[in-house]
Design a protein around this nucleic acid. Structure first.
Lengths: 138, 138
DNA sequence: ACTAGTGTTCTACTGGACCATAACAATTCA
DNA sequence: TGAATTGTTATGGTCCAGTAGAACACTAGT
C-alpha cells in the first residue's frame, strides 16, 4: 500500500503531488495492477488535505486509465507505466546509486544532482521525446 | 545570457520556473557572479508572462542573495550555488550521460529516469539533508 | 539636457486550488 | 436486513498566482 505525503512548500499543487507519487510508484514497480490505493478518507487524515483534493487526484489518474474507482470498495490500479524488466531496473538502480554516491563525495548536493540530471536528459533527448521536448535546462 | 522558457502545463507557477532555471544554471556553472539576467521586459515578451511575475521571480532570487537588481541598468548575478570544481562536474556529467544512455537502451523513458533519481536520492539521504528530508518517492 | 532602457510600484480583476461541511450512493460482510 | 466502508456530489467560501494597464524612478549614453 502506497503512502502519500504532501509538501505544502513545494509549489506543486497537492492533488498534483498525489498524482505524481502514484505515477512514480507505477514506474518503479512499487504499484501494480490490482493494488489498491489508500481510501480517500485515509489520505484526508494522513495528508491533512480535503476530500475534494484527493478526489481530484484520483479522478485525474482514472482519466488517464491508470486506476479505477469502485464505489463501496476502493480505488484500484488498472494500468501500468514504463514496464521495464525488474532485473534491468535493479541493475540500473545499483549503477545510479554508485554514481550518486560518487557525486556526493565530490560535494554535490541533491539539488546539484537534480540539475545535472535535468541538463543531461535535455541535452540528448531520447528518440521517443525528440519532437516533444520543451527544454528545461538553462 | 540565460534564456528562459515557461511551460504553462507544468503545474509549477511561472515565477517558480524562472527561479528554478536560474538556480539550475548557477549550479551547473552556466551563470556566474557578474552575469546579467535578461531584462524584465524581455522576459515578458519571450515567455509571454506579466512583468509582475518576472519581478516576483527576480525578487525571490534577490532575497536569497543570488542576484542584485540595479535600477536603470539591470539585474546581475552576485552569488553562487554548489560551487563544485568544473573538472569534477565535467567528470560526473560524463558518467551520468553514460548511465542515462544505458538506461534508455533498457527502455526507460525520461520520466522513469527522474523517478529513479528521486527514489535513490530519498533512499540514502546525504549527510547535509539527513534531518531535513521530506521524502518524495513513493 | 535629453532619451532610451532599466527596475519598480500601484490598483483592480480573474481564475484555480483548496477548505469546510454535509449529504448521497454503491458495495461488502455479518 | 442492517451497519460499516467506500467513492461521489454539492454548496459556498478563502487565498494566492497571474493578468492588465498605467505610471514612476533610476542609470547610462548621446
Amino acid at each position: 500500500m502506497i503512502e502519500f505525503h504532501v509538501d505544502r512548500t513545494d509549489g506543486l499543487p497537492a492533488y498534483a503531488q498525489l498524482v505524481q507519487q502514484v505515477r512514480e510508484a507505477l514506474r518503479l514497480g512499487l504499484l501494480k495492477p490490482g493494488d489498491r490505493l489508500p481510501a480517500v478518507r485515509d489520505v484526508v487524515v494522513s495528508c491533512t488535505v480535503n476530500a475534494n483534493t484527493v478526489l481530484k487526484a484520483y479522478r485525474e489518474l482514472e482519466h488517464g486509465g491508470l486506476v479505477e474507482a469502485r464505489q463501496g470498495s476502493g480505488t484500484f490500479v488498472t494500468g501500468s507505466l514504463g514496464a521495464v524488466e525488474p532485473h534491468d531496473m535493479a541493475r540500473l538502480r545499483t549503477g545510479l546509486a554508485r554514481w550518486v554516491s560518487d557525486a556526493r563525495e565530490a560535494g554535490l548536493e541533491d539539488e546539484d544532482v537534480k540539475a545535472l540530471v535535468t541538463a543531461v536528459l535535455a541535452a540528448e533527448p531520447a528518440a521517443s521525446e525528440r519532437d516533444t521536448r520543451q527544454g528545461a535546462g538553462a
